[in-house]
Simulated assay, not measured.
Amino acid sequence: MTDEKIKKSIAPCGLCCETCFAHVNGDIRKYSMKLKEKLGNFHINAKRFETMLNDPIFKKYIDFKEMLDYFASENCKGCRNEQCKLFKDCGVRSCHQEKQIDFCYQCDEFPCDKTNFDTGLYKGWIMINEKIKKFGLEPFYEKTRTRPRY
Score class of each variant (00 low, 15 high):
Asn45Glu: 07
Lys30Arg: 14
Lys36Met: 02
Glu138Ala: 06
Asn129Met: 09
Asp118Cys: 09
Glu142Val: 12
Ile101Cys: 06
Leu137Asp: 07
Asp113Ile: 02
Arg48Met: 10
Leu53His: 14
Cys16Gly: 08
Glu66Lys: 12
Lys131Ala: 12
Glu98Arg: 00
Cys76Gly: 02
Ala46Trp: 01
Tyr150Val: 06
Cys76Tyr: 05
Asp89Cys: 07
Gln100Lys: 15
Tyr70Leu: 14
Glu18Met: 09
Cys107Phe: 05
Pro148Ala: 02
Leu35Gln: 07
Thr146Glu: 14
Gln106Glu: 14
Lys85Pro: 00
Gly120Glu: 15
Lys34Cys: 05
Met33Trp: 01
Thr119Arg: 14
Glu98Asp: 00
Lys36Ile: 02
Gly124Ser: 13
Lys65Thr: 00
Gly26Lys: 08
Asp55Ile: 09
Lys134Ile: 08
Met67Glu: 08
Asp118Ile: 14
Lys36Asn: 07
Met33Val: 15
Gln100Asn: 13
Lys77Tyr: 02
Phe140Cys: 05
Lys8Val: 02
Phe87Glu: 14
Asp108Gly: 04
Lys134Trp: 02
Lys123Ala: 10
Asn81Asp: 05
Met52Glu: 15
Tyr105Val: 05
Ala22Met: 08
Asp89Val: 15
Gly91Met: 03
Ile44Met: 14
Phe21Cys: 11
Ser32Glu: 03
Gly136Thr: 11
Ile128His: 06
Arg93Asn: 04
Met127Gly: 12
Thr2Phe: 04
Gly78Trp: 04
Thr115Ile: 11
Tyr31Ile: 07
Asp102Asn: 14
Lys38Asp: 13
Phe49Ser: 10
Glu74Val: 05
Phe135Cys: 05
Arg145Glu: 10
Ala46Asp: 11
Lys133Thr: 15
Glu142Ser: 06
Tyr61Gly: 10
Glu4Tyr: 10
Met52Phe: 12
Lys88Phe: 06
Gly14Phe: 07
Cys13Ile: 03
Thr2Ile: 05
Cys13Thr: 13
Lys60Asn: 15
Glu109Leu: 10
Asp113Trp: 01
Lys60Pro: 09
Phe135Gly: 00
Cys104Ile: 01
Cys84Lys: 09
Val24Trp: 03
Lys47Arg: 11
Lys143Phe: 09
Lys65Val: 00
Arg147Asp: 11
Cys17Lys: 06
Leu39Asn: 06
Phe42Ile: 03
Phe117Ala: 11
Cys107Ala: 10
Lys88Thr: 11
Arg29Gln: 09
Asn75Gln: 12
Gly14Asn: 04
Glu82Lys: 00
Leu35His: 01
Cys79Ser: 14
Asp89Pro: 08
Arg147His: 09
Pro12Phe: 03
Cys107Lys: 02
Lys131Tyr: 10
Cys90Trp: 11
Lys60Phe: 11
His96Arg: 08
Lys85Ser: 03
Leu39Ser: 12
Cys104Phe: 01
Phe21Asp: 10
Ala72Met: 05
Asp102Trp: 12
Trp125Tyr: 15
Met127Ile: 10
Ile10Cys: 07
